[in-house]
Amino acid sequence: MFEKLSIFAKANDLALHAAARQSVIAQNVANADTPGYRARDVASFSETYKPGRPDQMRATRSGHIGADAATSPATESNVVYRAGATSPNGNSVSLETEMMMAAEAKRDHDMALAVYKSTLGIMRSALGRR
């Protein structure tokens, strides 16, 4: 019953997207001194989110039909290069920009958790539990 609620799935996908974005940002910071490294980012959630259709078959186990295809909204194919000025060694990482992007990714993750928690509270109230 609860796995069919699209709000839970959307909150989960937003949290996964924020985690993938935080990972790419961490790679950018780690390569801030690497000559020729270009700063990367994950495409926005609104561009990459494709909700599953309820009438569509879906894999429930790793060996199940078509489970090899990535269904996460934040896959490597969604990584894009961020525009910006480069340093003399060709590196385009700006630590200030990375800090702002990390805060934005944290905000998205916190929002996903808040939506999940709020929806769970509503469900508990509807069932008469506290």
Rank of each mutant, 00 (worst) to 15 (best):
V42F: 07
A70F: 06
R53F: 03
P88I: 03
V29M: 03
A9V: 07
G128I: 09
E47S: 15
S23H: 08
A19T: 08
N28C: 03
Q22A: 08
T86F: 15
A85D: 09
E104V: 04
D110G: 04
E47H: 12
F8L: 15
N31R: 11
N28M: 11
L120P: 03
R129I: 11
M57T: 00
N12Y: 13
T48F: 06
T48C: 13
L127K: 12
K106H: 09
T97I: 11
K10L: 07
S44P: 08
M111E: 00
K106L: 11
E47Q: 13
D108L: 01
I25L: 10
A67M: 03
A19F: 10
S44V: 08
M99R: 10
A103T: 08
R129A: 01
R61Y: 05
T75I: 09
L16W: 13
A126Y: 07
A67G: 01
D13S: 14
Y81Q: 07
Q56E: 11
F2R: 04
S72I: 14
A11S: 12
A32L: 14
L120G: 05
M99V: 02
H64W: 00
S125T: 08
S62D: 08
M101Q: 03
A85V: 09
R82K: 10
H109L: 03
R40Y: 03
R58C: 13
H109N: 05
P73A: 06
N31M: 08
I65D: 13
